[in-house]
Amino acid sequence: MMKDLIAKLKKHYKLTEPDYRRADLTFVTAQKDELRSLLIALRDIEGFTHLVLLTAVDWLEEGLFQLTYMLNNRAANRTLALRVMIPRANAVGDTIHDLWPTAETYQRELREMFGIDFPGSPRVNDEFILEGWTDMPPYRRDFDSLAYSLQTYRERPGRVTHDPREHMKKALYPDQKPEAAK
């Protein structure tokens, strides 16, 4: 069923080779400029009326954000996840709050946690979870949560650990590590 649907969609839209993860779950990458029309077609014609989730994946190394729009056809028990790749720099997505009002919440969160803007989405710049956050959007891969916590919170004093291998070397053969004679 999913194969037929993808074949049908491919006639009108540019889609990459899909990943048929399970019989009821397919991932496919779509073009950003075709997303809206694709979502409407899926919702209104193909029965994918349920927006399961909308979230982002940060492919830092590739300089891309992946937006995942997961849609579900409840009657047929099929889930189709559309990936849209957008550049990380000045990341902007197209708002879909008018298609699914609940998308407003997702887009607000993406704005706050990933720094992806959705112009036109209601209250998109309102604080969602974070209050008074001044650092970079924290769910970006380059936000180092460990460094942040080390710098923000105090480590409990007096904690020291030992690596078994190094500890044994120090105790048993401190100078014997053979290295090519110099």
Binding site: D19, R21, T68
Partner: peptide, 16 residues
């Protein structure tokens, strides 16, 4: 990537 869902007491619960 995958998505696993189930019917929790509150509705569709899932992990992506």
């Amino acid at each position: 990537e995958t998505y696993i869902k189930g019917e929790s007491s509150r509705g569709e619960y899932g992990y992506y």
